[in-house]
Computed example of a mutant assay.
Amino acid sequence: MSSAATQVLPPENRLKKQRLSEKQLAAKREAQAKARVQRRATRKVIFKRAEQYAKEYAARERAEIAQRRVARATGTFYVPAETKVVFVVRIKGIMRVPPKPRKILQLLRLIQINSGVFLRMNKATANMLQLVSPYVTYGEANLKTVRELVYKRGFAKIKSQRIPLQDNLVVEEHLGKYGILCMEDIIHEILTCGPHFKQVNSFLWPFKLSNPTGGWAPRKVLNFIEGGDSGNREHFINKLVQRMN
């Protein structure tokens, strides 16, 4: 009897499974190749945007310096533009906080002491900050502060979970539909109070900061201009964040 006649063929279901596995493997490899091409294209876009943002920040800083010099030379005053975004830090715990300020702090997502959030400044926000002024401190954050907060303390809120921002893919996956692809896009959206500020702010988990180096003022619930730590401290918020970061 010949060897061809004695050869046993594998079962049909095993052949079907093998062919299906080969198709799935080929489809997976094709998808991975497309993803690699897409990531290369996205990286190029990110690099171009980063360069564009750097030029924009530098031009804005030069323009402000020039306006200050003109005002000084002409004997007038330079009035900076109104603050669009503030960084708010909770400085007092839950003890002896009345119900209304406590509810506002919850709405602002300032649940814990030393937690901070970015807020768009408008009439409603100003009124809420006025009511919780003894329990928070706030001011206008500069580029350095925003960048350090996002890169060092940045976490995303994904399905009610706190996920570290370690990869631009996390940003692109959840904010790509708004044209936000990377960390620099998030920073730019916050600094300029862009059209998708609300979505970016909701995506970011409240920043958890440490106690400031050197400690708080002896009576921190006093207003900042009275020697305490609470209330509006304008650009001095950047020094405080540096001490807490």
Rank of each mutant, 00 (worst) to 15 (best):
Y78F: 06
P80G: 01
A81K: 08
F87Q: 04
V89L: 09
V89N: 04
I91Y: 11
G93A: 11
I94W: 15
I94D: 14
M95C: 14
V97H: 06
V97D: 11
V97E: 05
K100Y: 11
P101G: 10
R102W: 11
K103A: 12
I104D: 08
I104M: 09
L105V: 11
Q106L: 01
L107Q: 11
L108A: 13
R109N: 13
R109W: 13
R109D: 14
L110G: 06
Q112W: 09
I113H: 07
I113Q: 12
I113E: 12
N114R: 02
G116K: 08
V117T: 05
R120K: 03
M121D: 00
N122P: 10
K123G: 07
K123H: 13
K123E: 14
K123C: 03
A124D: 13
M128K: 14
M128F: 14
M128N: 15
L129N: 11
L131N: 03
V132I: 14
S133Y: 05
Y135T: 02
Y135I: 05
Y135N: 03
G139D: 03
E140N: 05
A141G: 02
N142C: 02
L143P: 05
L143G: 09
T145Q: 03
V146R: 02
E148W: 00
E148H: 02
E148C: 00
L149T: 10
L149I: 08
Y151R: 13
